[in-house]
Computed example of a mutant assay.
Amino acid sequence: MTRSGVRLQKFIAQAGLTSRRKAEEWIRAGRVQVNDRVVTEMGVVIDPSVDVVKVDGHVVEPLPTRRYVALYKPRFCVTTLYDPQGRPTVMDFVTSIRERIYPVGRLDFDAEGLLLLTNDGELAHRLIHPSYGVKKEYLVLVKGHPGKWFFQKWRDGVYLEEGKTSPAEVYLVKRERLGTWVRVIMHQGWYRQIKRMGQVTGYPVLRIKRIAYGPITLEGLKPGKFRELSRQEVRELYRLTGLNREGL
């Protein structure tokens, strides 16, 4: 044990085993060892690179540094770690990140816009899971000039193979000669859902650009560029998904 480093209970919490308060209870109960010596007092500081911590006889491995990235995914690249067809992947744009991070959900090959990447598996799972209802916002170009029926249909829900879609917020942005831009806010993410909704309602989707994922936006990003999320942004994602993480 060392006088400089991290407090024992914080180390256990950061390893993802439990909360800091619960870790203190484990220490008092004699369930924690440092270098094979049982520790029951508070205030012990360890050096994770040297000291071996065990809980109930099992070694506690520190988690890698958590990374949270917002990428402006360009069109015509796949949202995978590797593509057997040799197409560009979103990972080609985050090579300067040393930690192994993963896309949160996906965007179609020809879609563009905001994509989150992280190595925080629990947060990623909750962001994707429909029960947490984290909203995603898109600019969508549909072929033609839809009328009120189209907007109402998307707001009410469209019947697809999986069933009826959840109501979406849909707003007219602008009409062009051959198509119409609409803003779509959804809390759902079925496979190619927006494209299929357009097909079913008679207005094929020509372009998709995701501009927001929960509180995170594309502001300040250009295609192929990324930025690290701020601590406040990560806190907000935790709040939206019901996570409670210490140290942020």
Rank of each mutant, 00 (worst) to 15 (best):
Q152F: 08
L8Q: 06
L160R: 02
T201Q: 09
L107G: 00
K209F: 12
V38Y: 06
F151T: 13
V234P: 01
T65W: 01
E219C: 06
G16V: 00
G247N: 04
V142F: 08
F151S: 03
Y213C: 02
A15L: 02
T165H: 05
L243D: 10
N244T: 13
L229T: 03
V45E: 03
P88A: 03
T165Y: 05
G224S: 02
T217C: 08
V205F: 06
R3M: 00
A13G: 08
L107H: 01
V50G: 14
G242M: 06
T217D: 08
S19L: 11
E61Q: 15
S96D: 15
R28C: 03
D51L: 01
R37K: 12
V38R: 14
R239V: 07
D56C: 14
L123M: 09
V94D: 08
P167A: 06
K164L: 14
S19D: 04
T79F: 09
I185H: 11
R21H: 08
E233D: 13
E246I: 05
Q85M: 08
G214I: 09
T118V: 09
I46K: 10
R183Y: 04
M42K: 13
W181S: 10
E176T: 13
T79Q: 14
R98F: 00
V234T: 03
S4H: 08
P215N: 06
S230H: 00
V55R: 03
P48D: 10
P204K: 07
S19V: 08
L107S: 00
E99P: 11
A29M: 12
K22V: 07
E137V: 15
V34G: 10
W154L: 15
Q14Y: 09
R31T: 07
G214P: 06
L114Q: 00
C77R: 01
L160V: 05
V94F: 04
F11G: 04
F76T: 07
P167Y: 04
